[in-house]
Amino acid sequence: MSDALLGEWDDEFTGPAGDAGEPDAEAEDAPALFYPDVARFVGEHLAFVYRRQINPGGGTTWCPQWWRHAEAISRLEALWRAWEHLRHDGTTGMSVWYRDHADHHMAVLLNTDGPFKGCSPDDGHHPRLHPLPCEEPPPGLF
């Protein structure tokens, strides 16, 4: 993706920079990921197991460029990470994933007032939603 397109994103993440320190020993012992990243998880798994009739006028919507929405990235990343963890529980792992993670986050994502408001699978990505307005808290409050 060219740098020129970066300005077209709904939300440009400006969070803290990652730690460039020593490798995390716990991460080295973690089981291998089934999906290498959230994009593969969404495209190869979630899109197939979480099928819905998309009807913006009827309460569900989706953006084919979901990765242009900061909230969607965050929620889908959480879904992927939870799935990667819970897939190792051969008893109730997937039930817990659907109940505690997928059903909650997908209801928010697919809602016509959610982060994909104005987008549609047919017409693609559309108008941007603006960040919530925030004012600086009084000094010393936190």
Rank of each mutant, 00 (worst) to 15 (best):
L5S: 06
V42A: 03
G15I: 03
L46W: 03
D19T: 08
G57A: 06
W80H: 08
P16F: 09
E28L: 15
A70R: 12
Y35R: 01
E26R: 09
G7T: 05
D37P: 04
A30E: 15
A30L: 14
P16M: 13
Y35P: 00
T60L: 03
T14F: 05
E26Y: 04
C63Q: 05
H45M: 03
P36S: 09
R52P: 05
L33M: 04
L6R: 07
G58N: 07
H45R: 09
T60F: 01
D10M: 12
R68E: 14
F41L: 10
E44T: 09
G18P: 14
E71N: 04
G15F: 02
V49I: 14
A82Q: 02
A20I: 05
W66A: 03
F48L: 15
E44A: 15
P56L: 06
W80M: 05
R40I: 07
H45K: 06
A25N: 05
E26V: 07
F48Q: 11
E77S: 13
A25M: 02
F48Y: 14
G43R: 12
D10R: 09
E12M: 12
E28M: 13
E28I: 11
Q53H: 02
C63E: 03
P64W: 03
G15P: 05
A25I: 09
E28A: 15
E77L: 09
G18W: 10
L76G: 01
G18Y: 14
D11N: 10
P31E: 07
V42Y: 01
A39V: 07
D29L: 14
Q65A: 12
F41N: 03
R40H: 10
W67C: 00
L79A: 11
A47W: 01
R52Q: 11
H69G: 02
R81V: 13
A27M: 12
D11W: 08
E28Y: 07
W62R: 07
E22I: 12
W66E: 03
F13V: 08
F34H: 11
N55D: 08
V49Y: 01
L79H: 01
F41V: 01
P64I: 04
G58W: 02
Y50E: 13
D37S: 13
A82T: 00
T61Y: 05
T61D: 03
P36R: 08
V49G: 02
D29Y: 06
R40T: 09
D37M: 14
A72M: 00
E22P: 10
T60A: 08
G7I: 10
A47K: 13
L79R: 00
T14R: 13
E71S: 07
A39Q: 08
E12I: 15
A27K: 12
P31L: 04
P56S: 13
Q65T: 07
A82S: 15
A32E: 12
D19G: 06
A82P: 00
G7A: 15
D24N: 15
E71M: 05
L79K: 00
Y50S: 09
D29E: 15
Y35M: 00
D19I: 11
W66F: 08
P16S: 13
Y50I: 06
F48I: 09
A32T: 02
P56G: 11
Y35K: 00
A30T: 10
R81I: 03
P31F: 05
A17H: 12
G7Y: 10
Y50K: 03
D19R: 07
S74R: 08
I73K: 00
R40K: 10
A30H: 08
L6T: 14
L5K: 06
L5W: 10
W9M: 13
R40M: 07
